[in-house]
Design a protein around this nucleic acid. Structure first.
Length: 619
DNA sequence: CTAGGGTTAG
């Protein structure tokens, strides 16, 4: 009878039905005297519940019944105090212990780490290792590795693990893999991963999630296959979550469907996290119907996060009616929208250009929430992008001031952008000037430069750019797009040329198509066709649009030589398009070179024939 | 049968 009770307690405690376990046993033990198997599982329950009061009661009972001398009971007490965040009590207890065990040191070290006392933890680890009243083992090493944040420290621990021969143990090997991943060294993580002899699922999971964190999702499928084909380990829910989110970032729908199938075959019903990952993935792959059906099938496994995924999934796929429907159904499951939910609705409508709807939800949110999230303020601002909704934009500006968010770079950037788009460059400038010290984020500067450029205030645009250089802010490619297009708008060839060479020589940027386009337009407008041609020749893969600009300019300035070159290139890029030849012939016509006009007309006629069905092409 | 360690979604 008593054994049955103990088993039940142990099971309850380890399976997380903690409160039940504690109460159940406390009722039963009044009839029997406790033994050394009594207390540890009860303490574990308290730890899980975070119930310090109950834990102290047990502590008293342990002392009263004389079980404090037992290693297991004492260690469980230390661990319990750590888990309920009573660090001091745990450490005092450790000092009171008649003799430390390795496990008690481990409990203390990992507890200290969990509570953020990393320095203390490392010191205790060092002392235990050198003085050796209790010593350390692979468990200590693994748990210390769990909170290493820098590669240097991590490598020291790695050396230590190698010297003591722990490196090859699965737990330690896995910790090393995840440590290297956490430090951003996924190549080192991969090398370590290969070294682990008997990899467990967790080893695979640690490596895979590390690849995800380090932005290398493309390697995830092969690691996943490695596990399925060459090991006896079966993927679990954690593996599936990572595999699914890998296919989400790869937008690899086919692979994702395979994983989906595997999940169904293995588990029949959805785990909350796997289901949520699937919803997210299908939404990103633009299969909102599949996302919706996963959400429906999840029924009793849903939580607020799954709802939010479904809602934002519907929103980003333009299904705002479905999203609203889901939003209204939230409280039927006893859930309340949180900041993520509100943000999905508000930024969703903003991005769809439905300003009124976005504001409707914003007002609903403000009647419940005291202070709006910065994210939803910036989404609303991005929706207020023309003069018709300036009133709304100003309202948000008011909320920004109320929320004391003016010092936030993102918020200020969107405010300036909003005023620029509404045509109020003075208002934007006031925000820009008031922001001191200036942020290093180039986007903050870009919106001012491109805003001024679009309004034709090119001097002001260039002024901002000069200021950026004075402040030693690193410009981005977009900065140059903005400043070059400003120069192009106001026809400042000299400044344009200057900035164009600056971006390459001083900042080492390779010009993109939009930069080249600006320069070509600018040079062509002033008839500097040769220079325009030189700019085009810098491109590795010239596009047809730049040659079209050049050809147009050749027509205007009557340059038949460059015109022929441009028309030839265009003919190679777009053989179907007769327009270049027509333009070229009009250049010849303007120069009264009638023979050339005639020969081009023949070429055009031939091309038209080739396009007719049934007429064979001569190449 | 009891203590200590590595992996997870918006």
């Amino acid at each position: 009878m008593i054994n049955l009770t103990r088993h039940r307690v142990t099971n309850l405690a380890t399976n997380g039905v903690s409160l039940d376990a504690v109460l159940y046993t406390r009722r039963h033990y009044s009839a029997h005297s406790p033994d050394k198997f009594t207390f540890p599982p009860l303490l574990k329950s308290c730890a899980k519940l975070g119930d310090a009061t109950q834990g102290r009661t047990l502590h008293a009972q342990i002392i009263k019944t004389g079980f404090f001398v037992d290693y297991f009971a004492a260690t469980a007490l230390v661990s319990m105090y750590m888990k309920v965040k009573q660090t001091k009590d745990a450490l005092n207890l450790l000092d009171e212990m008649p003799e430390r065990s390795v496990a008690s040191v481990n409990a203390a070290v990992s507890g200290l780490l969990e509570n953020g006392f990393c320095g203390e933890a490392f010191r205790m680890f060092g002392e235990a290792r050198v003085c050796g009243f209790a010593g350390t083992n692979s468990v200590t090493v693994a748990s210390v590795l769990g909170s290493v944040e820098d590669v240097e420290g991590g490598m020291q621990m790695h050396c230590l693990a190698m010297k003591s021969g722990f490196e090859m143990e699965v737990y330690v090997g896995t910790s090393l893999v995840s440590m290297y991943s956490r430090c951003g060294e996924w190549v080192l993580a991969a090398r370590m991963f290969e070294k682990v002899a008997h990899k467990s699922v967790v080893t695979y999971n640690a490596f895979i999630s590390g690849l995800m964190e380090n932005g290398v999702p493309r390697l995830v499928p092969s690691v996943f296959n490695l596990m399925r084909k060459f090991s006896d380990e079966e993927p679990n829910d954690v593996t599936f979550v990572n595999a699914v989110s890998a296919s989400a970032s790869l937008l690899h729908l086919q692979y994702a469907r395979q994983i989906h199938g595997l999940v169904m075959k293995k588990t029949f019903r959805f785990d909350t996290m796997v289901g949520t990952a699937l919803i997210d993935m299908y939404s990103k792959c633009r299969c909102w119907k599949s996302a919706y059906s996963v959400f429906t099938e999840m029924k009793d496994a849903r939580n607020l996060i799954s709802w939010n995924s479904a809602i934002s999934g519907m929103m980003i796929n333009g299904q705002h009616e479905v999203a609203v429907e889901l939003f209204e159904q939230l409280d039927s499951e006893g859930l309340k929208p949180d900041s993520v939910t509100w943000n999905s609705m508000i930024s969703g409508f903003s991005q769809l250009g439905k300003v009124n709807e976005a504001f409707k939800f914003f007002e609903r949110m403000m009647s419940i929430v005291v202070v709006p999230s910065l994210k939803c303020l910036t989404s609303l601002l991005s929706a207020c992008s023309d003069i018709w909704v300036l009133k709304n934009g100003k309202e948000i500006h008011g909320h920004v001031i109320k929320a004391a968010a003016e010092r936030d770079t993102f918020v200020s950037t969107s405010l300036m952008d909003m005023y620029m788009k509404c045509g109020l460059s003075l208002w934007a400038r006031r925000i820009f000037d008031g922001f001191e010290p200036k942020p290093k984020d180039p986007v903050f500067w870009n919106v001012m430069i491109s805003g001024y450029g679009k309004h034709g205030e090119c001097k002001a645009a260039i002024e901002i750019f000069d200021l950026l250089r004075e402040e030693k802010v690193e410009p981005s490619l977009a900065t140059f797009t903005a400043v070059l297009s400003a120069c192009s708008h106001c026809g400042d060839v000299e400044k344009g040329m200057k900035f164009f060479s600056l971006m390459q020589e001083e900042y080492g940027f390779k010009p993109r198509i939009d930069h080249i386009g600006c320069m070509v337009d600018l040079l062509c407008r002033f008839g500097r066709l040769r220079e325009a041609k030189e700019v085009i020749d810098q491109m590795s893969e010239p596009s047809s649009s730049v040659y079209s600009s050049l050809l147009g300019a050749c027509k205007q300035h009557l340059d038949p030589v460059l015109g022929e070159e441009a028309a030839t290139k265009l003919g190679e890029l777009e053989p179907e398009n007769p327009a270049p030849l027509v333009i070229l012939s009009s250049i010849y016509a303007a120069l009264e070179r009638w023979e050339d006009v005639e020969s081009i007309r023949r070429v055009i006629d031939e091309k038209q024939l080739v396009k007719l069905p049934g007429v064979s092409s001569s190449g």
